[in-house]
């Protein structure tokens, strides 16, 4: 099995007096097609992990291979390109642009890609079909329910066919029912071969993953037996 993500002794220290070691040296591998949950309370280093995995931040020490590429050697522009092409982000707060239609929001994901100026709308529509929103293509996000908005966000993450879908508290702003629907969607996508990493504080959410790791005080431990 090829590894999509491979962290080798990755740590992140924030400068200050004293310096804060938000993530202690960590080894973590996410294989292709895997569904991993990273669970931990707030302040545990979850966010740091998210930003490192999402190439929004660089490790202080250690090496992070994404799709076999050493991300430490990349320029900002190349890391931005990797974010665009290899990683799909789903956020707790959805982050949809309220003045654009559903399909325009999904199309936004390809703006920063080098090779995507034709068929952008068609790909966006196809992605929305995958999350079951083909009937709301031209709706404004303000008229959508929370669950629908998060599904638009998932479609936006999927449109670039990422190697890794990175979800940050994807159900945090949703009620239990719609949260379950999103989790069901994730399972469906996982079943189709997508590699997922869900970062959450919610054990119930993490328990639905194929594999869990728990992060606490910057230390990542595998969870052997889910409850």
């Amino acid at each position: 099995m090829t590894a999509v993500v491979e962290l080798q002794q990755v740590s992140r220290t924030f400068p200050g007096t004293p310096p804060v070691e938000a993530l202690k040296p960590t080894d973590l591998t996410i294989n292709k097609g895997e569904y991993l949950a990273i669970v931990g309370p707030s302040g545990s280093g979850k966010s740091t992990m998210l930003h490192l995995l999402g190439l929004l931040d660089t490790p202080t020490k250690g090496t992070y291979f994404l799709d076999g590429t050493d991300t430490g050697a990349l320029s900002e522009r190349e890391r931005a390109g990797m974010r665009s092409a290899r990683i799909g982000f789903v956020f707790q707060a959805f982050h949809l642009l309220s003045h654009r239609t559903t399909v325009e929001n999904v199309m936004l994901a390809e703006v920063y890609r080098p090779d995507s100026s034709t068929g952008r709308r068609e790909r966006a529509i196809a992605a929305l079909e995958m999350v079951g929103l083909a009937h709301r293509l031209d709706a404004s996000p303000t008229t959508l329910s929370g669950g629908e908005r998060q599904r638009v966000a998932v479609a936006r993450a999927l449109v670039s066919k990422p190697s890794l879908l990175l979800a940050d508290e994807p159900t945090g702003n949703l009620d239990t029912t719609t949260g379950n629907q999103i989790m069901a969607l994730f399972e469906e996508l996982h079943g189709a071969g997508l590699t997922l990493a869900v970062i959450t504080h919610d054990d119930e959410v993490s328990s639905r993953a194929q594999r869990q790791v728990r992060i606490r005080d910057g230390v990542v431990d595998p969870v052997v037996a889910a409850s």
Partner: peptide, 19 residues
């Protein structure tokens, strides 16, 4: 037009995409 997941991009033998 189909962003199907059955054809993920090859993981190596690629140059790093630039934004």
């Amino acid at each position: 037009a189909n962003p199907g997941l059955d054809t993920p991009p090859p993981t190596d033998e690629e140059q790093v995409p630039q934004s």
